[in-house]
Amino acid sequence: MADDSQKQQELSDEEVVRQEIQKKVIAAFDIFDHEANKTVDVREIGTIIRSLGCCPTESELHDLISEVEEDEPTGFIRYERFEPMMIRVLMERRYRPENEDQILKAFSVLDEEKKGYLTVEQLTKYMTEEVPEEAFSQDELEEMLQASVDPEKHVIYYKDYASLMTVDETA
């Protein structure tokens, strides 16, 4: 009898988590649903997924998009196809971002002179040329630079930026 009660509690806990995730997915999707018709431009899917704390590679992102696209791609993704995939991804805690220490290590490798910052040109080169299959799009690069470049010095102080790139696991 106690086992049944425990199983019911676990199921209800999982359902509460699922409902909370669903609310976040709806809110994120709705931001980009400009026509209020439960569709978004396929080019917005990466931003939506990343806003939910997932950091898939470009290849993984293309796989996710393929999973939710219509059989005949229209350029738009319907919420009813996006929601089950996104809830599953979030429930499985897939595509979690690296922690701040790992991000700092990656930036410090790029900062060969150990100055504590990268120039816009350096970061642009690394993000668009070094690993072609994982290259950032122009929109992604502009978004990253907008968030990371110090407005006075026009460089990226990566120690400051690394904390912005991490996700609060309790949120």
Rank of each mutant, 00 (worst) to 15 (best):
M1L: 14
M1F: 13
A2Y: 11
D3F: 08
D3K: 09
D4P: 05
Q6R: 12
Q6Y: 13
K7Q: 14
K7L: 15
S12F: 10
V16R: 13
V16P: 00
Q19C: 09
Q19P: 00
E20N: 15
I21D: 05
K23W: 07
K23M: 05
K23Q: 07
K23G: 03
K24T: 07
I26A: 05
A28Q: 05
A28E: 04
D30A: 12
H34P: 00
E35F: 03
A36V: 04
A36R: 05
A36H: 07
T39F: 01
V40G: 02
V40P: 04
V42Q: 08
V42D: 03
R43L: 07
R43I: 06
T47Q: 08
I48E: 01
R50L: 08
L52E: 07
C55F: 12
E58P: 01
S59K: 11
H62W: 11
L64S: 01
L64R: 09
E67V: 00
V68L: 02
E69I: 04
E72I: 11
P73D: 10
T74I: 05
G75L: 07
R78D: 05
E80N: 13
R81C: 02
F82G: 03
M86Q: 03
I87L: 10
I87T: 14
I87R: 09
L90M: 15
M91Y: 08
E92T: 06
E92D: 13
R93C: 02
R93I: 02
R94Q: 15
R94F: 06
E98R: 12
Q102P: 01
K105I: 06
A106Y: 03
S108V: 00
S108Q: 15
S108I: 01
E112A: 14
E113R: 09
E113N: 11
E113T: 13
K114E: 09
G116I: 04
G116C: 03
L118C: 10
L118N: 12
V120D: 15
T124L: 08
K125G: 11
T128M: 04
E129K: 15
V131H: 11
E133G: 02
E134R: 01
E134A: 07
F136A: 01
F136L: 04
F136T: 00
Q138H: 15
Q138Y: 13
D139L: 10
E140F: 00
E143Q: 03
L145M: 06
L145W: 01
S148F: 12
V149A: 04
P151I: 01
K153V: 10
Y157F: 13
D160K: 14
A162F: 14
S163G: 03
S163I: 11
T166Y: 14
D168G: 09
E169D: 08
E169V: 11
T170D: 12
